[in-house]
C-alpha cells in the first residue's frame, strides 16, 4: 500500500498518481505523511480508495471528491470537501471556513469545530460536526443535512432555500428566512441515518436535536416590496 512523504514528493505528482487510479485499483489504501498544510491535497479523486493524511492540511482538501474516503488526522484549512460529490471525508481535528461548501453528496465529518460558513451553499452533502460551527453557516443552503453536536454561531441558515439543519446545542441567532421547524418522521429518519453513517449512534440520539430550515418566504418576490425599487 503506497506511503507518500510530501516532504520528498511534490504535491502535484501525488495528486496525478491519485487521479490515475482506475475503479478496480489494487492500491486501495494510501498513507500521506508531512502534509505541512499544503493546499488542494487529494482533490478530484474518482475511485473507491482510502487516503489517510497524517497531519494538518491546507485549503480545499478533498475538493470534488467522488467515492474516495479521505481521513485527515489533523486540522483542515479553508474549503475542505468543497463541492464533493460522494465518498467520505473525515477530519479528526478542526476545520476552517467554508467546510463542505457547495457539496453535492457524500459525507463530511469534522470531529472538532468548524469555523465560519460551514456548509455554505450545500447542495446535497451531509455534514456532521462533533464540535461547534461558526457564524453564517449553511448560508443559501439548498439540499442535504447539516448535523451539529455543539453550538451554532450567528445567522445560521441565512437565505436558506432548503436543507435540514440539526443542532444539538445553542444557536446564537438565525439568519433571514431560517426558522425552527417541528421534526417529522422523515426528518428524524434522515437525521438517524446521517448519525449512523458518521458512526455516532452510540453517542447521540436524534431526540437531542432541534431542526431548523427554510420558512420559504424569500422564494418569490413579494409585490408589497415593489415600492422599494
Amino acid at each position: 500500500m503506497p506511503v507518500v512523504d510530501l516532504a520528498m514528493v511534490p504535491l502535484r505528482s501525488l495528486n496525478a498518481d491519485l487521479h490515475k487510479l482506475p475503479q478496480n485499483t489494487n492500491e486501495t489504501h494510501w498513507t500521506i505523511r508531512n502534509p505541512g498544510g499544503k493546499h488542494a491535497l487529494a482533490v478530484g479523486l474518482d475511485a473507491p480508495v482510502t487516503v489517510e493524511i497524517e497531519g494538518h492540511v491546507g485549503y480545499y482538501c478533498g475538493g470534488m471528491n467522488k467515492e474516495a474516503t479521505i481521513v485527515v488526522t489533523g486540522n483542515a484549512g479553508v474549503g475542505v470537501g468543497e463541492n464533493m460529490m460522494s465518498g467520505e471525508i473525515r477530519i479528526k481535528g478542526d476545520a476552517s471556513q467554508a467546510a463542505g461548501a457547495t457539496g453535492r453528496g457524500g459525507l463530511l465529518v469534522i470531529e472538532g469545530d468548524a469555523s465560519a460558513r460551514c456548509g455554505i451553499s450545500m447542495k446535497g452533502i451531509d455534514i456532521v460536526v462533533k464540535g461547534s460551527i461558526g457564524p453564517m453557516s449553511a448560508f443559501m443552503a439548498q439540499e442535504g443535512n447539516l448535523v451539529v453536536l455543539g453550538d451554532a454561531g450567528e445567522a445560521l441558515g441565512d437565505s436558506i432555500y432548503e436543507a435540514r439543519l440539526f443542532v444539538r446545542g445553542a444557536v446564537r441567532s438565525l439568519g433571514a428566512d431560517c426558522v425552527e421547524k417541528p421534526m417529522e418522521a422523515a426528518d428524524r429518519a434522515a437525521l438517524a441515518g446521517v448519525i449512523a453513517r458518521a458512526g455516532l449512534s452510540d453517542d447521540v440520539s436524534p431526540d437531542e436535536f432541534k431542526l431548523y430550515g427554510s420558512a420559504r418566504t424569500l422564494y418569490h418576490f413579494h409585490v408589497d416590496n415593489a415600492s422599494a425599487y
Binding site: 493546499h39 478542526d94 469555523s115
Partner: peptide
Amino acid sequence: SEYRALAGLPGIESAHIFEPEP
C-alpha cells in the same frame, strides 16, 4: 495567514492550533 507558515516551527506537532474568532 495559513497553517503552512507555521508548519516549520519547533514543537508545532504538539502546539495548540486554533483559528482566531471574528
